[in-house]
Design a protein around this nucleic acid. Sequence first.
DNA 1: ACAAAAGTGTTACGGTTACACCCATGC
DNA 2: GCATGGGTGTAACCGTAACACTTTTGT
Lengths: 247, 247
Amino acid sequence: MRKSDKHLRFMDFANGNAKTYQYHKEDKVLLAVDCIIFGFDEEDLKILLIKRGFEPEMGKWSLVGGFLQKQETLETAATRILNLYTGLDNIYMEQVATFSEVDRDPVERTISTAYYALINIEEHNQKLNKQFSANWFSVAKAPKLIFDHDKMIQHALKRLRNRAATQPIGFELLPEKFTMRQLQKLYEAIWDTQLDKRNFINKIRSLNILEKLDEKDKTSSRKGSFLYQFDPQKYQSEEGKPFVLNF
Amino acid sequence: MRKSDKHLRFMDFANGNAKTYQYHKEDKVLLAVDCIIFGFDEEDLKILLIKRGFEPEMGKWSLVGGFLQKQETLETAATRILNLYTGLDNIYMEQVATFSEVDRDPVERTISTAYYALINIEEHNQKLNKQFSANWFSVAKAPKLIFDHDKMIQHALKRLRNRAATQPIGFELLPEKFTMRQLQKLYEAIWDTQLDKRNFINKIRSLNILEKLDEKDKTSSRKGSFLYQFDPQKYQSEEGKPFVLNF
DNA sequence: ACAAAAGTGTTACGGTTACACCCATGC
DNA sequence: GCATGGGTGTAACCGTAACACTTTTGT
């Protein structure tokens, strides 16, 4: 009987005392981590891609990725890989999903967990690791990627859109100080939509999580526009509760 | 230089022609799948747990789970495991997340992907595989589980709450024909809240995805209450677009 | 003076919430 | 005839969406 076979097989390998328990060994697999690195350039939502420097699929565009090492959690691995390719630390990352199609990697059975990261594209450009041929692409205009990386991006994008509507993560993509116009363009890019600037500012203000600074940014207009800053304290004092930006 | 070391290590193992590429082998790990099986008993949202029949942690309560086999995707494995423990097929399942703390399983490094499933508890009780000591527990009153299974449940619950608000998945937990009262109690259980029955029925009706039947269910009242049925066609004709039940 | 972007407030609309009584039936 | 749960509609309220003009300042 098939069902009980499976179960017994499992049990066979799990006996003895705690130190010597061991599961069956024959089905171990390679685990990879791939990172969808989002950035924002004042106009478009972008992703960082690299041109693969090795076979197979050498020369094709791909997400940045790497293999999980034995002593690491997936989070640690994702952080390590992100740092390797961007030089950045302390970056917002979130697990998206794990992709396990048997033939997703033609070389060898590999299962990959995707993480997305939100980085300030300016800060990145200063630290970018030049040894990799990495490039920013608008999400809408990205080239076809290897394996199932396109699917990963779609998942990540969906997640980002959801998160952005309920948690204050958009700021991760902007400089520390930003204008309302920048913030609005960011949300417009994330949701691929147009927003009314009066309604936008009213709604953002009502969240009560930004501090308006006295400084102005004069690079984009003669009049200059006020800078704002995300204030984690204000957000916490609202019990960090999720808001709803249902634009 | 650490960074390029990692990269070169990766490249070292990826040369030659396509058939002979091979990644390094030393970091393969065991991959498990754990299933959070949700059911609804007209009152509470429940989960199916089993008493572990083998060491370690024999006798403790746990999610149902098993190991990924080489030729399977995670989805396939989750389906297989669900079937093994419940005898059910064609069940709604969704991947929740992958858990990778290094010591999460004391026996051996094991990484586990959690899936949640929604099943009709009645149908299940007929097919339940009696060889496992499985039990339904109200989510709120479940015992402490082994490893990080409690964390998995919290993640799954969060996902379920989100999905239930935007997609027609609640019906998976009910018999094919159900009363409005049942549906309301289900949503109340999922969100742990109280709803007004008039507002509830108005909102559900406005979604235009249910068919009202001529039959009545007379088990719960003398008057009897009309039965409804989810109509996938109606849902599709609304372009399957997500609704928002923001109770 | 004029071009270019910043900044601001009000009204109409639509959806959500709150709320109470009659109905049908089995006992 | 009465107890039990089923079924229904409306009005107040609140948040969202639509909308246009004035301000500032560098050239």
